[in-house]
Amino acid sequence: MTKKFLPCILAALLCLTSLVLPIAAEDTYALNIDFMFNNGPVGGAQFSVYRAIEPKDDAFALTDAFAGYTVDLPEDADDPRWSVIAETLAAYVARDGITPDASGMTDAGGVLRLTGLEGGVYLIIGETVILGDVMLLPKPMIVSLPYTDAEGNVYFDFTVEPKCENRPIPSDELERRVIKIWKDDGNETLRPHEITVQLLCDGDIFDERTLNEENGWGYTWTGLDAAHRWQVAEKEVPDEYTVEITQEGITFTVTNTCDNPPPPPPPPPSTLPQTGMMWWPVPVLFGAGILFCVVGAAAYVIRGKKNEKT
């Protein structure tokens, strides 16, 4: 029973709904990866799948192999953050060389069939493919087995179509930027003074950089070889934070989130800053001065005349 969905990322998110149903009908499941580019099949593409997440107590939890990564799994199966989780975990899989549960290469028809898979939520990662003068970089995705569609139909043999980014080769040298985002309103004191990010070249650590307030929590690598796949990972996630890594354009965004309740904000000042010059005393002083002079002069003159009379 096979069904194809476009776009595949939506399929990956929708299929997570199957987790709300009990996994009981069959012991193992099949996953078909149908890799297309420009409406044509892409053969010889290497894909690996990792059983990264499993349903646990009506929620999702990382499997033992992924338990060391402090990501915050969405509670809802259709949460768009699942694609971010896929991208984040893919960088750590590349860096740490985690063994896949299954892997293989697409055939001439662009299809890879993986069978005997245990029920759970799988991370699908594809290797870079050179296709003529184009480099294809499959986007990591997450899919659940078995899959349940919006109508409640359960699929034990499911097909996904991974999306991919493409760029022409040869290409100029690349630039990659990383920025750090803190989502910890009211808990800023928990932040470390600095964090370390790693630039991965085809999964190997190529460079490490420290991000801090001084460099604006950002760094740009230049002169990178365009023939490689570049990813970013956070070396150690700070205590009490989770991590998400996304890429938009050349920029990787490493987001650390702390869900502790924020302390009450300090009371605001009762007045706005005083931004006025001291002009108001000038007319007051001048007027008072004139008054004193007039009264004094009058007193002097009147008294003088009285003195003359007496």
Partner: peptide, 30 residues
């Protein structure tokens, strides 16, 4: 007594001059 009353006028004028001078000084400072 007459001298004292004349002196009161002089004091008032002096205070007035000081206030005017202060206004001018504040203006210059501003």
């Amino acid at each position: 007594m007459k001298k004292r009353k004349n002196a009161a006028g002089v004091v008032l004028i002096s205070i007035g001059m000081i206030l005017i001078a202060s206004a001018l000084a504040l203006t210059v400072y501003n």
